[in-house]
Nucleic acid binder design. Structure first.
Lengths: 142, 142
DNA sequence: GTGAATGCAAATTCTTTGCACGAGC
DNA sequence: GCTCGTGCAAAGAATTTGCATTCAC
């Protein structure tokens, strides 16, 4: 179980307003409530937070996810489909396998792929600072 | 050297209008003219095609790249930065290493990573139909 | 000739911003 | 009181779409 976003904010000196607390809480509870597959977009997040505090505006949600992203608290993903989707950054890095039929998202870690990526960057004289690996697949009938 | 887009259209039964021919030609010549790093967005493509035929509208460019993408002729990439960027699909699959300082794009192939990706999908009971691997790096001073 | 493609401008969608008001120190 | 955050609505940017006209076959 990962550290609450609220605590991370305090650790990083991000000021916590009431609105930010609600957004932090909703994102902290995301996977516990909706499963590992949960990567809400801003609209979905807005729906969830306004159930707790109906006065929060969508602009604040946009501003807050951007703030959290810059603070290294949330990760932004541009999966196929146009809108940006967010998840809390966890200690352990992982990549995504996306079911193109159902939209389900499976998170996985593959140390060997990680190592090879560094090797590739190295080969071209680069230091790897970030990467994105998304697999798109269909369930095999078995 | 890869097959011209125009020929691919004929092979796939995609109707060729004058506008589509111009767009096909510009995308076919993309890497030869602008280097391996070339992955134009729609705006850039629009600039290039209107130099050949100034009457082509941006809507046609959008419609055409979507059409070509659906026909498996162009690949669409959502690199960081908001706008979609395109390149011709070549026989040999490759991934991208992006220089986050200069924006340069290096294309690379790593068979081992490819294999591991299939293995991961397999492990979760999926058949891999597509994937996206992007490395973001900074040049090492050496 | 007929259905599909185009150009234009308006509409959509996602996201950002200007500004006046409000909250916290 | 001052600074910064928020809400609202308007602005922006990228992309799509409705419709009348034109084009490809």
């Amino acid at each position: 179980m990962s550290q609450s976003i609220e605590k991370k904010c305090i650790a990083k000196g991000v000021k916590l307003t009431e609105q930010r607390k609600v957004i932090a809480r909703v994102m902290s509870e995301s996977k516990e409530t909706y499963g590992e597959s949960d990567h809400p977009d801003v609209d979905e997040l807005y729906n969830r937070v306004t159930k707790i505090d109906p006065k929060i505006s969508i602009a604040t949600v946009y501003r807050t996810v951007k703030l959290f992203e810059e603070a290294g608290i949330l990760a932004k993903h541009d999966f196929k489909g146009g809108k940006a989707r967010y998840e809390q950054i966890s200690e352990s890095h992982h990549d995504h396998l996306i079911d193109i039929k159902s939209g389900d998202i499976i998170e996985f870690v593959d140390e060997e792929i990680e190592k090879l990526q560094k090797k590739v960057a190295d080969k071209y004289g680069y230091e790897l600072v970030d990467h994105k690996l998304e697999l798109y697949g269909v369930k095999k009938k078995s």
